[in-house]
Amino acid sequence: MPESPRRDEYLLLSRGQWDPEKSKEEIQSAIDRFYLWYERLVEQGTFKRGHRLATETMRVSRHGVTDGPFTEAKEIIGGYWFIVAGSLQEAARIAAENPCLACGLSYEVRPIEHERASAYRAANETPPPAQ
Rank of each mutant, 00 (worst) to 15 (best):
D8V: 02
D19K: 04
I27W: 03
Y10E: 08
R49Y: 05
H63A: 13
E9A: 07
M1S: 12
A119M: 11
K74L: 03
P127V: 06
L41A: 03
E108M: 04
E26C: 02
R6F: 02
G68P: 07
Q44I: 00
N124L: 15
N124I: 12
Q28P: 01
F82I: 14
R49D: 04
L12F: 01
G45H: 05
Y80R: 03
P99K: 09
R6H: 08
S87F: 07
C100G: 00
Q89H: 11
A73I: 12
A117G: 10
R59Y: 05
R49C: 02
N98L: 04
Y120A: 15
Y35Q: 12
I77Y: 08
M58E: 15
R15H: 07
A95N: 03
E72D: 11
K24D: 14
I83Y: 05
A117C: 00
P127M: 09
G68N: 09
A130V: 11
E9I: 00
A85Q: 06
G104I: 07
Y107L: 05
G68K: 08
G104R: 08
A91M: 06
G68Q: 10
N98V: 04
S106K: 07
G64F: 06
V84Y: 03
K48M: 09
E56F: 10
R93C: 02
I77R: 08
